[in-house]
Nucleic acid binder design. Structure first.
Lengths: 73, 73
DNA sequence: TTGTGACTTGTAGTCCGTT
DNA sequence: CAACGGACTACAAGTCACA
């Protein structure tokens, strides 16, 4: 499993946990709505500043968005 | 402090902890030596696949390379 | 052994839309 | 509300010569 897939899953899970739509998250993180959609579908390898902006908007640690599930380690 | 600076410091610290030169790490991670030099000088916002390749070469977690020092939180 | 400048190429990231 | 397309711009990715 590639890191961008891990990131995609963590991102979607964290966003839904907060009850946010892609558009609301996009606004908070100042990132394009369609790009967040792409990230959740594992299209791109986000750069670390995008990871951090999303983490801040989601009120979690940037490192948490890259954390692999226990079953995968 | 920007995330790329956090990453740069963590990268250099982890590399030196392993007693590796930039060139040796470059070889292990299959990344150009001068690019690693750039990353350690906070030139770029690395993408998450590069972060992971370096983490694997350093035998640490990708998330650890993004972790901010306690004094910074 | 590492830093740096100059450069090219590939992909990250934006903005418009439709389904 | 989200998936998806095309066309674009910005910047990461990768290479080289040299200090």
């Amino acid at each position: 499993m590639e890191i961008k897939e891990v990131f995609a899953q963590n991102l979607r899970a964290a966003r839904q946990q907060k009850g946010l739509s892609q558009e609301e998250l996009a606004h908070r993180a100042e990132i394009d709505r369609t790009y967040i959609s792409s990230l959740e579908r594992s299209i791109y390898n986000a750069s670390i500043d995008v990871v951090e902006r999303l983490a801040i908007a989601l009120e979690i640690q940037a490192a948490d968005l890259l954390r692999r599930p226990p079953s995968d380690t």
